[in-house]
Simulated assay, not measured.
Amino acid sequence: MDSSRGHGGIQHLLAAEQEAQHIVNAARNAKMARLKQAKEEAEKEIAEYRAQMEQEFQRKLTESSGDSGANVKRLEQETDDKIHHLKTEASRISNDVVDMLLKHVTTVKN
């Protein structure tokens, strides 16, 4: 009877070992699944962060381009003001310049 009892104990140990192996395999598979999920979540967060940074970069690029557009407008206004000032001064003194040129051209020196 001892041999059947010993044989039954071995069967019981083999079944327990097999069950333990299934538990270890299930835990290993769960760990791998969790690692895969964590990796996917990290990649998603990275993509979102990258998109956010790209959007921020584009916004700053647009703002700086807008500033240069404002500078161009300011420079154009200053240029127009200077041209207007020069035309006003030229029209104001043009008669005096013409008179002076005529005087020097028509005066004969010996």
Rank of each mutant, 00 (worst) to 15 (best):
N25S: 10
A27L: 09
A27Q: 09
A27M: 06
A27T: 07
A27D: 03
A30D: 07
K31I: 04
A33H: 08
R34A: 08
L35I: 04
L35M: 10
K36A: 06
Q37I: 01
Q37A: 10
K39Q: 15
K39D: 13
K39F: 05
E40P: 00
E41H: 12
E41D: 15
E41Y: 08
A42V: 00
A42K: 13
A42N: 07
A42R: 09
E43K: 15
K44C: 02
E45C: 01
I46L: 14
A47W: 02
E48V: 02
Y49P: 00
R50W: 01
R50M: 06
A51V: 00
Q52T: 04
E54N: 05
E54K: 03
Q55L: 05
E56I: 04
E56R: 01
F57L: 06
Q58C: 01
Q58I: 06
Q58V: 06
R59T: 12
R59W: 04
R59G: 00
K60R: 06
K60W: 04
L61F: 08
L61G: 05
T62Q: 11
T62H: 08
E63C: 03
E63W: 03
S64K: 06
S64G: 02
S64L: 14
S65T: 04
S65Y: 00
G66H: 05
D67N: 04
S68E: 08
G69W: 01
G69C: 05
A70R: 14
N71E: 13
N71F: 08
N71W: 07
N71K: 12
V72L: 15
K73L: 13
R74D: 09
R74W: 08
L75A: 12
E76T: 14
E76G: 15
T79A: 13
T79G: 11
D80T: 11
D80W: 09
D80G: 13
D80Y: 08
D81Q: 13
D81C: 09
I83C: 10
I83R: 12
H85F: 12
H85S: 14
H85D: 15
L86G: 06
S91P: 00
R92Y: 11
I93Y: 14
I93C: 10
I93L: 11
S94P: 01
S94I: 12
S94L: 07
N95T: 14
D96Y: 11
D96M: 11
V97W: 07
V97L: 11
V98N: 07
V98G: 04
V98A: 09
M100Q: 10
L101N: 08
K103S: 07
K103H: 11
V105K: 12
T106R: 12
